[in-house]
């Protein structure tokens, strides 16, 4: 590698490259070890996207908040509340799904605006405010209904069709199964939504004034203010964005699970934070990228798939592997920071 490429790769970019390489490395290992169990099929990879579509949206929002130096731990509960509103509205009240979806998006905006206002303008610690938001949303979920409600063919035809709609990829990507039938790989609507969210967030962070302001605020809030940025407004917008993307994530999640229950998506916020950190976002803000977070989700998803495919391992091993990865990445970040300081 020539020097210029190496130069570009220093620090934060290198972290992203490591994340992406690690993902492919893990996946290839999976392909080799579990080749008999269908790991090599494209569909396994696509299923990874399908199961994690909700988390991808939520992690995108989380990345934005973390970039400006904040944190949003209300997202898991908000996803649960969104699912419950959809399931209860369609299952118990026979409401049409489109108004319900719009309602969820509006709730996300309002939810984020309140949290963002308190954090940005009232200068309250984001951890405390979003923790309040977490309890509130979880509580509201139970207030709406304590039962587990499923969305089926009979409750809402349209939503059911969306959830089961297969977007088929070209047939040559498929394979012939044991019965001699052609299996064409497919994805679902939620995957399209999630990928659009990642693309939109990437664009937002890289090419809009607001996106760059997030980095500035996360880098040094005082300086950002001195340079004439309205840090309060930027922070508020970040939380609105997070809750909004979280609501979209909630819809994707519901399309996947087709149910609503109080305990749903618990610990989701931590998954989102973990994915962002593995993807190279610093908890202190200012450094990170949504592409990294996307691969962060894919890595944690791959770990789970690997553990499940093995079949003999306790599923908790996935958690332990994630913990090890988190440590690995945080140590790596510290090492880079240290090297950078030394070389100055």
């Amino acid at each position: 590698m020539n020097k210029k490429v190496l130069d570009r790769l220093n620090g934060n970019t290198l972290l992203l490259v490591i994340t992406i390489c690690l993902f492919f490395f893990m996946y290839i290992i999976g392909c080799i070890v579990y080749s008999g169990k269908g790991f090599t099929h494209l569909q396994t990879f696509l299923n990874l996207l399908i199961t994690n579509a909700g988390l991808i949206c939520v992690a995108s929002g989380m990345t934005c908040v973390m970039l400006c130096g904040g944190i949003d731990i209300s997202v898991g509960s908000l996803v649960a509340m969104d699912c419950m509103i959809l399931a209860y509205g369609m299952g118990k009240q026979n409401l049409p799904c489109i108004p319900l979806i719009l309602m969820i998006l509006v709730i996300g905006l309002i939810f984020g605006a309140v949290q963002g206002f308190l954090i940005g303008y009232m200068k309250i610690q984001p951890f405390i405010i979003t923790m309040a938001g977490m309890f509130f949303a979880r509580g509201m979920t139970a207030v709406i209904c304590t039962d587990q409600i499923s969305i089926t063919d009979t409750t809402n035809k349209l939503f059911y069709t969306w959830a089961n709609f297969k977007i088929q990829l070209p047939a040559f990507l498929g394979y012939i199964n044991k019965k001699g039938k052609l299996q064409v790989p497919f994805i679902r609507i939620s995957v399209i939504i999630a990928l659009l969210v990642v693309a939109a967030t990437f664009f937002l962070l890289k090419y809009t004034k607001f996106g760059r302001s997030l980095y500035a605020v996360g880098g040094n809030q005082t300086s950002a203010a001195m340079m004439g940025l309205d840090t309060r407004k930027i922070k508020m917008k970040a939380y609105i964005l997070s809750s909004f993307l979280c609501s979209i994530g909630g819809i994707c999640y519901c399309l996947n699970t087709m149910s609503g229950s109080v305990q749903q998506a618990s610990g989701f916020e931590m998954d989102a934070i973990a994915s962002s950190v593995i993807g190279g976002t610093l908890l202190t803000g200012g450094v990170g990228n949504v592409i990294g977070s996307f691969f962060g989700v894919m890595i944690t998803g791959t770990i789970t798939t690997l553990v499940n495919t093995n079949g003999k391992l306790l599923s908790s091993w996935a958690n332990i592997a994630t913990a090890a990865l988190l440590c690995f990445f945080i140590i790596l970040q510290s090492v880079f920071a240290y090297v950078k300081n030394r070389s100055k």
Binding site: K209, R212, Y215, N220, A224, M226, M227, G228, L229
Partner: peptide
């Protein structure tokens, strides 16, 4: 005290808020 953002590029520091 230098009031710039260490995590942004030099160009961004020159133009942030008026890109």
């Amino acid at each position: 005290e230098v009031n710039l953002c260490p995590n942004l590029s030099v160009a961004e520091n020159l133009f942030i808020g008026r890109e």
